[in-house]
Simulated assay, not measured.
Amino acid sequence: MSGTSGICAGRVVAVTGAGRGLGRAHALALAAEGAAVVVNDLGTGPAGEGASEGPAHAVVAEIRAGGGAAVAHTGDIATDAGAVSLVGTALEAYGRLDALVNNAGFLRDRMLVNLGEDDWDAVVAVHLKGHFLPLRHAAAHWRARAKAGQVPGARVVNTTSGAGLLGSVGQANYAAAKAGIVALTLVAAAELARYGVLVNAVAPAARTRMTEGPFADAMAAPGAGAFDAMAPENVSPLVVWLASPESAGVTGRVLEADGGRITVMNGWHRGPTADSGTRRTPAEAGAATRRLLAQAPPPLPVYGSG
């Protein structure tokens, strides 16, 4: 695999949702940089329907055809058993796990008043629970290694979204899950630092099955010869770097990535403040809040709000 630096040589990386789109691009890029990759994909449809082992095995075959190392994992990482077996597959195949890239997901978009409980539960499960469970079991493995005197130098790359950072009309379930992933990233970074585990999140913008519907025009491929800013492969170099030893010292960060652009997202921070030193009446609280809002910049618009 020519034209690469090998910054992940000798590392074992598990990538969830790696059968298509961003996950596939990440898996191929990691393998090109020397990583052995556990390719997880349940093989569901765009809305989480059905299952197929085909996508995961196809990516494994593609990596092996290029001279890389990979094994397939087709379990459901939104279940405890599936998450346990994901970590187990890495250990059985390669004897170690160095990085986890949480990427699996699907969409069931509805306006809030039309959003059913099943659609809420399914999307929150695959995105938020599907991040938590693999992270939990990978972290337990790395903690055990650290306590045994083997500092793991491990990495976790979570996948959030601009929808989770700013909101997105018609995607209350998805946006809430992606916002939860940011909080999970911050907590995990703080808790796992003592064990040598760095945890960050990437908010990508790319053309995938998930964006074909709601953002089809913005994600359309350009004409021949033009730079394809929405290609999933544009996001993967950042993911590879974050999964590598080269990202030492970087943790608890959220980074937007699309095309050739990388942006550090600063998240919530305290703005204008007023302290009365005593309890306010509702009218006083309202008046103080209006004065503070007049001093603060307006919020960024929610995607799709006009």
Score class of each variant (00 low, 15 high):
residue 208 T to Q: 02
residue 203 A to T: 11
residue 203 A to P: 13
residue 203 A to V: 12
residue 202 V to N: 06
residue 243 A to L: 03
residue 115 L to A: 04
residue 226 A to V: 14
residue 210 M to K: 05
residue 121 D to E: 06
residue 105 G to Y: 11
residue 238 L to H: 10
residue 137 H to S: 04
residue 147 K to I: 02
residue 106 F to K: 04
residue 210 M to G: 05
residue 162 G to Q: 09
residue 147 K to R: 15
residue 169 V to L: 05
residue 204 P to S: 00
residue 222 P to S: 00
residue 191 E to H: 11
residue 160 T to C: 05
residue 167 G to F: 11
residue 202 V to I: 14
residue 171 Q to H: 11
residue 133 L to S: 05
residue 183 A to E: 04
residue 233 E to I: 02
residue 197 V to N: 03
residue 186 L to Y: 15
residue 170 G to V: 03
residue 206 A to F: 13
residue 230 M to A: 14
residue 227 F to E: 02
residue 169 V to R: 08
residue 153 G to K: 01
residue 218 A to D: 13
residue 224 A to Q: 13
residue 228 D to E: 09
residue 227 F to D: 04
residue 160 T to V: 07
residue 132 F to K: 01
residue 125 A to M: 02
residue 174 Y to D: 03
residue 221 A to K: 15
residue 199 V to G: 02
residue 136 R to F: 12
residue 242 L to T: 14
residue 165 L to N: 05
residue 132 F to D: 02
residue 231 A to W: 14
residue 160 T to M: 00
residue 188 A to L: 05
residue 243 A to S: 15
residue 186 L to T: 10
residue 178 K to R: 07
residue 166 L to Y: 15
residue 173 N to L: 02
residue 203 A to D: 09
residue 122 A to N: 09
residue 187 V to E: 08
residue 242 L to R: 11
residue 142 W to G: 01
residue 238 L to D: 05
residue 107 L to F: 13
residue 149 G to I: 04
residue 137 H to K: 00
residue 220 A to Q: 12
residue 188 A to M: 05
residue 148 A to I: 07
residue 203 A to I: 07
residue 177 A to E: 03
residue 162 G to I: 12
residue 234 N to L: 00
residue 181 I to T: 10
residue 199 V to W: 04
residue 175 A to Y: 08
residue 209 R to I: 11
residue 143 R to Q: 15
residue 174 Y to P: 03
residue 141 H to F: 15
residue 140 A to K: 15
residue 219 M to K: 06
residue 193 A to W: 14
residue 243 A to H: 10
residue 120 W to L: 00
residue 177 A to K: 06
residue 136 R to L: 09
residue 233 E to L: 01
residue 228 D to W: 12
residue 160 T to Y: 07
residue 226 A to F: 12
residue 166 L to H: 15
residue 157 V to T: 08
residue 129 K to F: 05
residue 173 N to T: 11
residue 193 A to P: 13
residue 143 R to T: 15
residue 179 A to Y: 14
residue 190 A to D: 14
residue 133 L to H: 06
residue 137 H to V: 09
residue 237 P to I: 03
residue 170 G to L: 04
residue 105 G to M: 01
residue 232 P to F: 09
residue 226 A to W: 08
